[in-house]
Amino acid sequence: MRILAGPKNHHFVPQYYFRLFTGGQRHICAYLTQHKCVIPRAPIKGQCARHKFYGSAEIENHFSLLEGLHASALQTLVKAAENDNIHEFTWEHFPWLLQAIVFQRARTMLEVEKTFPVLEGMMLKMFKEHLLHTLSPEDIEEYVGPIERGEVRIFEDPTATVLRQISVALESASLLVDLQPRLIRNHSDYPFVFSDSPVVFYNLYYQYITDRGVLGLQTPGLMIFYPLTPRLQLLMIDPAVYTGSIANGPFCDIVDRSDVSHLNALQMHHSNSAIYFAHMGDAEYVEELYKAHAPQITKPQAEFRVCQNLLVNGEPFDEEIMHTFEPQLNHMLSLSFLDCKPVMPEEFSFRHRSPEIVEEHDRLHPPGLEVDE
């Protein structure tokens, strides 16, 4: 098979997604968060792209084929909302929608930067333990000491990191099949915006659980936010724990500016370096909203912890366990159309939303140890 050379700039947010916001136009407005400035007509072809980010033309061409399927699912969802007919979006589209979500989340520069330090911590910890068990006592300080003092670093090509993340994500998309899609239709005079890492995971149900991860694909209460146009946003929710008008049907119409700004704030807290919006007339709103949230914005960063006294597969486990997770965004989400009764830390117990889905996934993709704190 002949592989086309393809573009050398590989996009981690695809151009078709930008055009959902611009109505097919080739330019978009961008707010650069590090420079605190607005670019009125940023060329879409130059946004969210890195030189040979995926390594080879063959991989980029393969991803382009996937993007075509993902674009069709998202475009059909947009048309269904515009025509007030959810039946235009069929179950044939649903698997591609789930794959589009996990693919987009895994492929960004923010995801690379948030996850690799955790991988480095794990590898250094494992290497240290290997040295402690193989070196003679007189050699331990010479070789282990620099690790303990933070003098040893491990580096990985970002291409290797992102391709590993994408592989795991695509393998795991089916774990989201029990979430229900809701389309939030924005009738306010504020637009939806999106960031250079537009798929945002959040969990109001477990908002008070801070000592472990609550953003896993099968975690109860998981919410997934994905802006689609200035007037439409996809929300995937766990129907077992969330109530309010969001639970009444596939479409949720909102008019409250506060709701729109809370959803836009998620994008700002989850951004790496840019916020995008369709019309220059909204620049002042975007700038002011970012300035209001800037003091509380903490760049997302996964955490690596070495824990003891855990339950593994439901049984006490006395040895150390390496535990990694992504904390929630530093934004207390409040939406008029959605409510839940949060779980208090003393009430928390580990469980999956749908054990049968996890069982089927694990049958096809055998996992490692399951850890319950």
Score class of each variant (00 low, 15 high):
Arg351Val: 15
His70Phe: 14
Glu142Gln: 08
Lys52Gly: 02
Pro95Asn: 04
Ala80Asp: 00
Ser261His: 12
Ala274Pro: 01
Phe201Tyr: 10
Val38Lys: 12
Leu179Trp: 00
His361Ser: 06
Ile59Phe: 05
Leu204Gly: 00
Leu364Glu: 12
Lys299Gln: 12
Gly24Asn: 09
Leu66Glu: 13
Val241Trp: 03
Gly221Pro: 01
Ala71Gly: 03
Phe225Ala: 12
Glu360Lys: 13
Val152Ile: 15
Val13Asn: 02
Ile246Trp: 00
Glu287Leu: 09
Asp157Asn: 15
Gly221Asp: 02
Phe201Met: 11
Phe225Gly: 01
Leu310Ile: 11
Arg153Asn: 09
Glu113Ala: 07
Pro220Met: 01
Glu346Ala: 14
Lys291Val: 12
Met236Ile: 04
Phe18Asp: 01
Ala302His: 14
Arg164Gly: 14
Val38Asp: 12
Leu69Pro: 00
Trp96Phe: 09
Ile154Tyr: 06
Met109Pro: 02
Gln47Asn: 12
Leu204Trp: 02
Gly213Thr: 08
Thr108Glu: 02
Leu217Gln: 02
Asp139Phe: 15
Tyr16His: 14
Met122Val: 08
Leu65Ile: 11
Leu66Cys: 13
Glu359Ile: 02
Thr159Val: 02
Glu60Gly: 13
Ala80Tyr: 00
Glu151Met: 08
Pro40Gly: 05
Leu310Lys: 09
Leu65Gln: 13
Pro117Thr: 08
Leu329Cys: 06
Gly368Glu: 11
Glu326Met: 11
Glu320Ser: 10
Gly46Pro: 03
Met223Phe: 05
